[in-house]
Write a protein that binds this DNA or RNA. Sequence first.
RNA 1: GGCGGCGUACCCAAGUGGUAAGGGAGCAGUCUGCAAAACUGCGAUGCAGCGGUUCAAAUCCGCUCGCCGCCUCCA
Length: 478
Amino acid sequence: MIRVYNTLKGVKEDFIPQKNNEVRMYVCGPTVYDLSHIGHARSAVAFDVIYRYLKYRGYKVIYVRNYTDVDDKIIKKANEEGVSPKEIAERYIKAFDEDMDALGVSLPDFRPKVTETMDEIIRFVQTLIDKGYAYVIDGDVYYSVRRFNKYGTLSKKNIEELEAGARVEVDERKKDPLDFALWKASKENEPWWESPWGNGRPGWHIECSAMNKKLLGDTLDIHGGGKDLIFPHHENEMAQSEAASGKPFVRYWLHNGFVNINQEKMSKSLGNILTIKDALKNYSAEAIRLFLLSSHYRSPIDYSPDVLSDAEASLDRFYATKERMEKEWPDVINKKADKKKKEERLKPLIDAMDDDFNTALAIGHVFNEVNNANRMMDGAKKSGVSDEFKTALSVIKAVFGEMGAVFGVFHKSPEGYFNEKKRYLKISEDEIRNLIDERNNARKNKNWSRADEIRRELEEKGIILEDRAGETIWKVKR
RNA sequence: GGCGGCGUACCCAAGUGGUAAGGGAGCAGUCUGCAAAACUGCGAUGCAGCGGUUCAAAUCCGCUCGCCGCCUCCA
């Protein structure tokens, strides 16, 4: 049984989708006005793993992640650059897609855009007006917060205190300062769409409600996003959707924690925004993914060179072991793993993931198995190959394969992994080869000082030499 | 001010009542010409602090200290 922490209830509870085997899942995607940063990556990776895991556990998942391509910030940027909002949106959708692809984030089943959902949005607003939850003023449409008596239940906010503490500039025309815009009449130099209330564009929250209704129906099983979206975005979404349908909007609200940079919140004013593209210049996508999955998705995490190096070191260890398994015991690991034994070994991993997608614990178990595999291979070398050993090693290989597919980490070929590290090389491969040859000649002549000198020389350039039986191999260790 | 959360070894991190997973770094050993990798051993008598509940607490309760997030666009 999967258990998830539901923001709405504030506790972990059993995960039971409305339709026995089917999960309808929606995650808030980016507003495409700038390059995506490492925080977007966290949200995307966290929910990607949740998506993959639900499928792994046998659910049929319909996963939707939107692009907000109509928004104040997009318009502002477009006006600054003297280009159309459409051009801005397209540019950053492309950039976001590239980033997701680089990070190995799987494509959601649907990726709706606001511009392609306009009819549904307008109908949705009209429904809210018809039901008395919204009112029109000079071409604007506002949602009447006080009409929805559950307002504040998601973010645990008291409506009276909200009003008292409101720091937003109040639009005097609104009936209540808390009311928010469903539809905004277009101003000059703004994109607009025709509507019953005049030309205008949607407010921020209505798109998600409309997209959800269109693609997933009135009630979702999972709705996800960053913690910062709980208020006001998700609170407003819930208010809109439940007012319109009269049904519960979301069964399980899931929210991921933030990524800080050197203990500070990322923000434009601090100037410490780390884009995904910049992160990828310094670290591999897999290391970034492993870093993101090394703590629980709800905890805040701190991005720093140290923790990313830790992730790289972990990956080196994992792939060195995988390589050893493949090189030393190809016949053993290519045999089909015993199903029952596999389930036994998989159990701790499954239990961890079932418990609110505890990737950190599950990855810990992966490394327990790395240790087991190495110990068993050492043992087999010393005291012979037993059937037990063969079974266990093939099972571990299978465990790596299955969990690798869920995490989107640990799934490469060791050769491919170590080859990728060559991008950090500060010396040509030919030069390395030549130096290794020279060193091996020196070793033959027992010229140990020259041999060690070459080793040191290469080490300074981030190359580690390993003298194996009959050959010297080199690896990138930066 | 309101709401929510966090504080576990040198660093990262799991653990929500039964006696501290895992990774990195470090030290020692096996192996090696020397290394590397791997393995073995060592490493928190204690989980911010102080009290309390309990046969038993990192885990529950209370207080104190420190840190953070949301309340306004934000993953």
